[in-house]
Write a protein that binds this DNA or RNA. Structure first.
Lengths: 241, 241
DNA sequence: CGTCTCCTTGATTGAAATCAACTTAGGTGG
DNA sequence: CCACCTAAGTTGATTTCAATCAAGGAGACG
């Protein structure tokens, strides 16, 4: 092994295990299809509930796109493993958000549980059949796709920011608005994961969060808990840098 | 910087049946969830042809999302004007590609003609009504949204590249595959526009293209014409940096 | 108590932004 | 046709910011 530690190499070994352990298709086929009490849409009766342990892969690049998901609890990361060894996290999804929608027959991205999470899993084929009969289903599908599009575009705008501080400020405000938890943010993900999402190094994430704290913009009671103290200035940083 | 007038609305009233549009191709051409409406689709009779002069705005941030478009000729840029004065171009669209699809009632982005261009314009309300009756229309809508999603995700991956050379190499290869013109690329856009798309400065774009030429990766007979000489090495740069 | 992982902080290096000067291409009118 | 003008593009010098390399600290856990 190398002297330099690769924080997600551990997760990579989990992938290998995950590929053999949870046989996505058979596993779910055996599972009884049950009603998702959290869902309110027309998909209500179509989902199966799945539990995924921390760090475990949900699907991998190259898999069939025969299933898609909705997060019931915790956080999921959607990532791409690049040839140069980097991992780019193109999205985090939290409770209520759907993911796993893809255009082609095979997946372009890998999905993994950031922490142990509960998902509702839909069989694409079933939903497509439903969409043929039920107009509300096809509208819901379009809605999901458009939400994903808006999120991806927002992420492009974030990555286009020239300064790391601006990206982190944007990320904090976005995360706050999505988690609906007031000024308090509970991070499920590590500094490394934040960095892989914002395309900056773990060290820079740490440095800038420290700087924000020194400037009185945030408070960090613990490494994974963060209070936004001055959203106005954070917003200015997000807008301007 | 640019004119604020919207002179194309007048042109809209002259309703002409949309002629056959070049079919979508390239990385978006996938099997599933795809409907090809190039000659028989219901969209064929629903579009109005519009001509937009160079640099002119097609729609602006804040406008109603009551129309969407397909490019018949030339190139369109979709951009966001940021508070710090920067312009981020989130996408270029070329012949055969559609744009202007947005989730909400009001636009998040501005569209402008890079060069004088011809568009086919669809009224969203009409298409939605058609989608209620015709399943192929609703599938086409979903298809458009998914294509936009895939493109936005690809752009996120591009912007996440840490080195400017990698972004430019990716951009060149993407542009080549979309323009279907062999190894020759004709740029409609300026260095500044490329920079605004890749989130790097105009000067760096110029420097790196010069470097590529010195390294024998490309040839530049003129500033807007570019020949890819070594796509293998360009591909490696796109992958690795 | 040691060990591991995650996080923080410091020192150095490297790449791109910025500032600035200069060149080229394209258009206009004499 | 040329002289001129302007916008676009190139190249160089300097500065700035974040990556990298390196070391140490904090918390979890057996």
């Amino acid at each position: 092994m190398r002297t330099k530690t690769n924080p997600w190499r551990a997760t990579l070994t989990l992938h290998a295990a995950a590929r053999t352990i949870p046989p996505t298709r058979g596993f779910l086929a055996r599972k009884s299809w049950q009603t998702d009490l959290r869902s309110t849409g027309p998909f209500q009766t179509a989902g199966a509930i799945v539990q995924i342990p921390e760090g475990r892969q949900i699907f991998a690049e190259g898999d069939d796109t025969d299933l898609f998901y909705k997060v019931a609890s915790s956080v999921v990361r959607i990532c791409k493993f690049l040839k140069d060894g980097r991992r780019q996290i193109i999205a985090f999804h939290m409770a209520g958000e759907s993911f796993g929608f893809e255009l082609g027959l095979y997946r372009q991205f890998t999905a993994e549980a950031v922490k142990e999470c509960t998902l509702v899993c839909y069989r694409r084929r079933n939903i497509e059949l439903m969409a043929q009969k039920d107009r509300t289903v096809s509208r819901q599908l379009l809605q999901y796709a458009m939400q994903g599009l808006a999120q991806a575009q927002a992420h492009s705008l974030l990555l286009a920011k020239p300064r790391a501080a601006g990206r982190i400020a944007s990320f904090l405000l976005d995360w706050q608005s999505r988690s609906n938890n007031g000024a308090v943010i509970q991070f499920a993900m590590s500094r490394q994961e934040i960095g892989d999402h914002l395309a900056i190094s773990m060290e820079t994430v740490s440095r800038i969060l420290s700087q924000f704290e020194r400037d009185g913009l945030i408070a960090m009671p613990s490494t994974r808990e963060l209070h936004l103290l001055n959203t106005r200035v954070l917003g200015e940083m997000a807008d301007c840098k």
